[in-house]
Nucleic acid binder design. Sequence first.
RNA 1: GGAGAGAUGCCCGAGUGGCCAAUGGGGACGGACUGUAAAUCCGUUGGCGGAUCGCCUUCGAUGGUUCAAAUCCAUCUCUCUCCA
Length: 394
Amino acid sequence: MSPEDQLKILKENAEDLIEEKELLEKLKAGRPLRVKLGVDPSRPDLHLGHAVVLRKLRQFQDLGHIVVLIIGDFTARIGDPSGRSKTRPMLSAEETKRNAISYQEQAFKILDKGKTELRFNSEWLDPLKFEDVIRLTSKYTVARMLERDDFEKRYKAGEPISIVELLYPIAQAYDSVSVRADVEMGGTDQKFNLLVGRKYQEEFGQSPQVVLTMPIIEGTDGTLKMSKSYENYIGLTDPPDEVYGKIMSIPDALMFKYARLLTNLDVEGAKKDIESSKLHPMEFKKSLAFEIVNWLYSQEDAKKAQDKFITTFSKKEIPDDIPEITAINGIKLTQFLKDIKAADSTSEAKRLITQNGVKINQDTIEDVMMTTNFKDGDILKVGKRKIYRIILGS
RNA sequence: GGAGAGAUGCCCGAGUGGCCAAUGGGGACGGACUGUAAAUCCGUUGGCGGAUCGCCUUCGAUGGUUCAAAUCCAUCUCUCUCCA
């Protein structure tokens, strides 16, 4: 494909492309580009937010380029000492390794394994001597570091910034130097770090990497960015039903963004049809949910998830495919709900009952003190989403 | 090195001796309604107990004062600001 056509595909949906001209130049050289993505193995659970970037990387691969996936094992080992931040716990070598493997497995749901070069940054960061580190830091100033958005904000707000944090962008930049990255990708929140990489590559006599960032998507709550720590994420390994349901629970306003960044659906067409009432917003969201499950799993799984969703929530019926659970009669229902993890505590079970959230075969339970008295095959419903079929045990 | 501010429930943030299991917001959960686990509205949100009552644990940590402490005192840990 011609460099111009490639460029067109690659810049689609991108937030920043610095510099477009440079990317075109690199494409024109005709060799496979080395496209870098650095990942933090302390958080091995990938979600749709990561998928946005991974999809773009996949496009690079499909155009014949190489993805260099860097596992930040060195960085993870150091951790983040800035007290409150739980985002970067210190990890042992084994944990890091385990996480790295899990990370790869998830990433290869999207990436082409054959065109991925996997590296660990301890490879080049471990051998550095303190002298080398100081040399590296001497090429950057505090003022320039503080240009980074979140540093600036935290500094002004009087929140702590650990010196280690100032070093991370430099470490990441040195990664770029070490793997001779042509392009580095990330979310827009990574823009600053990626730019530091350019500066360092120049210092080391390399041509600066092209920085390509993708939009950050908001999580299921609709406002905060998708992140594990906000519990608003849709994980790549979430089961199909869950993925489908979570997509259905995103605010309508967000569904076009998801569709644009995560599927090949015709977003503009759908928008028009919804405005002219030819297409129901819910129908579009359903096809979005379907597409995403289809992509992460299979068409069959997507179909199943969709059917289950419709019976459970649209028709409010009991789907066929529900988990079975063994029950014993004669114990307190609250205790039972806790045992089967339908509630975290007895108090919560009690609350659910009080709030009319527990049903057995369509009958709402009102007695908090009730003792279990199931019949084989009874349907137990707890809240909106938890449905079980009772199997009587002895 | 000096001066000052602060640490509260999942998160943010009130509370400066009893009425505090602790206002409010966010999140989460439940219900109603619906077009969906959208939106909106209402409610719940430490744990345990045969329970509209009682018990236990919680306000950075450890001791202390008091009939009574998140609130007062001491020591400690951590964070921030200003000055040097």
